[in-house]
Design a binder for these strands. Structure first.
Lengths: 110, 110
DNA sequence: GGACAAAACTATACTAAAGGAAGTAGTTAC
DNA sequence: GTAACTACTTCCTTTAGTATAGTTTTGTCC
């Protein structure tokens, strides 16, 4: 694995801090997890993430869209449907989620 | 890279969710980042993480200790000093932080 | 011996973020 | 007309985080 600086002084522009600022909010990583398996509609996300409030879901989707990590497409169906999808940038979060999955897996089996 | 299930139905005991629950609080990943480069005292952490409040720092340290990700050792120096150190379990978070560092690095250079 | 200092916190008051319940708008099936 | 579906918004309460002051326990300086 490539060597990356993780510790020490990096107050301005630490890459870990930058990533933390994106994923630190509640539900954020789970929204991304859902989108890693393909584009999803608002209601699909809401059903998959049992317990998320519509307020937090739209806040997360708007934040991720603003940061260009997901794209939002509205379809003129009836009723109107909206599709959310990871951008190329957003897909680059996959290794982070994979590392989290591996840690969580060995955590669950003690 | 090993294939790991990231999407789909995993409400009870999803490994990503488990990891997210640990690192989702503000400052948590940065505390771990500091400890990845070796054991640190309370005041060292406070100085390194400019802006963290003592309340949040001790809350994070207590939480991580309770989850057995860090250990706390008190020394009978004068004044008393306390050292925090990642456990073997805690060290296993390194790949997550490395992935975050890599994402953040390419994010910073656009 | 009294003032002051350092480390590691705790306590308190305040603000920002998240959760929960309910409501809105547009359209269509019954 | 009423219910249902999708994608939200609004309002209010609760929880999380910020800012800052205070506490405790030795010990040195004068």
């Amino acid at each position: 694995m490539e060597r990356v600086e993780t510790g020490g002084r990096c107050d301005q522009g630490c890459p870990i801090k930058k990533t933390a600022q994106i994923i630190e909010g509640k539900w954020t990583t789970l929204v991304i997890r859902e989108l890693l398996s393909g584009k999803k509609r608002y209601s699909q996300l809401q059903r998959a993430l049992t317990g998320i409030s519509p307020k937090v879901l739209s806040a997360r989707l708007r934040m991720l869209e603003q940061k260009k990590l997901i794209s939002r497409t509205v379809f003129a169906t009836v009723p109107v449907t909206t599709e959310y999808q990871l951008t190329v940038q957003g897909l680059k979060l996959q290794p982070v989620l994979l590392a989290m999955a591996e840690f969580g897996a060995q955590w669950l089996e003690q």
